[in-house]
Design a protein around this nucleic acid. Structure first.
Lengths: 347, 347
DNA sequence: GCTCGTTCTGCAAACGTTTGCAGCGGGCGG
DNA sequence: CCGCCCGCTGCAAACGTTTGCAGAACGAGC
């Protein structure tokens, strides 16, 4: 029974001030600009704050300061583990700074994206936009973009060239000389980057070694897409294929199995993204993993920079990492042990 | 060049009022309680609102009204498609009511869950809590819980009994008489419900037909868990197994393949959840799908009820749906066509 | 014609912070 | 010893809404 009395309504700045015998403004400062108030006063105030369990009213703070202490994340499909992992990283990182995370799932629809950008802009201090299909004009607050380059927008991307180069290098080092690469949808930024990278490396990097890289037509980055793409792979007469995606790779795996072509003995398959799914296929999928966690954290960090008016580099590029499992082997080499417990990681 | 002049700062309620020649309060009412203002005045106000592009300041509204027009979602792991699907449904549903969605990923840690509940409570009007490991005491706002029953908390769950009964019934109808069921972790509400359901149905429902259901020890609902569980399955001498999970089922599938036991010819496997993953396994997994979308929408709806002080039923139960793919068949019946394009759905 | 009720609108007080400005001592340089 | 600056705190005005209360206009009932 403290002498608090009064109804049980959350304590306000005034309550704390009265109780500490100081002016509300002082309490406010003690909390938000600690070095503007004398050490003694500050600790007194903080004691009272702790004692009555005061926690500042967010709306009131927002109203006058204009800040919201929240950030927004716009993704095309939260159900996709790739995006979910990014969201997870951002939110876990934001927690440390006591930032709320608003989320918008747009279903990759342009109109919805615009709407989300506009709506969110008014409720947050900044937005992390993951692969929007539209421009970012609807946003009226700081934005950083993930996996897409754009003029005047700071972005963080995973090195698409490195993905395809890493995959192909892995295969050539195993001895493959005829390698197919399944292209992604033309509308994807990442797809066009990879295509270009292949064109570049085909002559300079692999050209000398008599390695033949064949580009397969753009294919949906889905399980069905992968299944369908198998026909092309088969026809092209390669001994290895690089999928656009882990999910697509899973489709390839199943289609190859159906066709009686064994992986990795007669065909090597490498995926990309490094989803949990890749470890669950049969055989487990060798894949070029995107640093999803790092991607999210970096996006969050860059957003903080932009919000602080210190944009820094326009683009920060993250390197993927090769995860070797059991879907790749030397051409024609019949390994057994389809599911080796330990898995190797290298770059 | 309208006669607006002034700096380019977002228009406020006052601006609209001045321009429409009415009092700010009237504008406010025209927007929030339309039937309190004369039709003529209202349309005049709305015209001006549209003209200047006024949109009410959220913080100010919150401050005085106490409402936030936001809801929170607490999940153990957003990376898990099961939870992601729920979040997606909630957020897509909330969009219609112009509600913001705050998200908290707790990593299934008790402390984090409590923290999230407490923090979120102050920023939203209500929370949808998905399978928290802790109590809900930290929440100070309306809460509805998903997939868990609790005293004095309204919840929406998928019928766990139906899941296991549906799975087993499917198998018995195929002719199986010895069926293993892998139990889930004892800490899971859903696991205990299923265990109980089996006990009940074993005698009443399947007892008469000489069907033998054997309960396997609690096993992690993971891919590795599934792989590890295969040994038990094999030892138990059954012709079919019901996994706790699609992911776990995927592990079983792979382990069976490694052991040279063919699915579904020599062993039928049925999963549960109905994730996208289930369609990507080899063979494609027969599974008892949870109505994830409906689950999210229902949670959102019930939360709206609770927030409106019309709690209604304490628990709303949703029925799962059997999705037949290629991992189940009559015992000993050697079917081919491992990946039939069309898939059947029944209940 | 007066009163009463209804319908609408204006008035002003909140809501709980932040922040520019001013005031008040005290230490220090001149 | 005087004045100045500096470190600290108080004062009060915002920030943009919502909402209880009161007043105005108007029609109806007596």
């Amino acid at each position: 029974m403290r002498g608090v009395a009064a109804v049980d309504r959350p304590p306000t700045l005034r309550d704390v001030a009265r109780r500490a015998g100081v002016h509300p403004a002082t309490v406010s400062r003690a909390l938000t600009k600690p070095d503007m108030v004398a050490a003694e006063t500050r600790s007194l105030v903080l004691d009272v704050v702790a004692e009555v369990g005061f926690v500042p009213n967010r709306s009131a703070r927002q109203l006058v300061s204009g800040r919201t202490d929240a950030i927004g994340v716009v993704v095309p499909d939260i159900t996709n583990p790739y995006f979910a992992a990014i969201v997870q990283a951002i939110q876990s990182d934001a927690r440390g700074d006591d930032l709320a995370v608003l989320i918008a799932d747009t279903g990759a629809e342009a109109a919805e994206e615009r709407r989300a950008l506009a709506t969110l802009s008014r409720q947050v201090d900044g937005i992390v936009a993951v692969t929007p299909v539209t421009d970012l004009e609807a946003a009226t607050c700081p934005v950083v973009e993930v996996n897409r380059r754009r003029r005047h927008v700071v972005s963080v991307v995973v090195d698409q060239e490195a993905i395809v180069v890493t995959a192909v290098d892995h295969l050539t080092s195993l001895g493959h000389t005829r390698i197919a690469v399944v292209r992604g949808p033309v509308a994807y930024w990442s797809a066009s980057r990879r295509d270009r990278a292949i064109g570049r490396s085909a002559t300079t990097r692999w050209g000398a070694g008599a390695v033949r890289v064949v580009l397969l037509p753009p294919t949906a980055p889905t399980f069905e897409g992968g299944r369908a793409a198998y026909a092309e792979v088969d026809r092209s007469g390669v001994t290895a294929v690089v999928a656009f995606n882990d999910v697509q790779a899973a489709g390839l795996l199943v289609a190859a199995d159906d066709a009686g072509r064994s992986v990795p003995d007669s065909l090597s398959v490498v995926g990309s993204d490094g989803l949990a799914l890749a470890a669950m296929t049969s055989p487990p999928l060798t894949t070029v993993a995107a640093p999803l966690d790092e991607l999210g954290r970096a996006a969050r960090q860059r957003l903080a920079d932009v919000m602080a008016d210190a944009p820094g580099a326009a683009v920060t590029t993250l390197r993927p990492q090769l995860v070797v499992r059991a879907s790749t082997a030397a051409p024609g080499a019949g390994t057994d042990g389809a599911h080796p417990p330990p898995e190797g990681i290298s770059t």
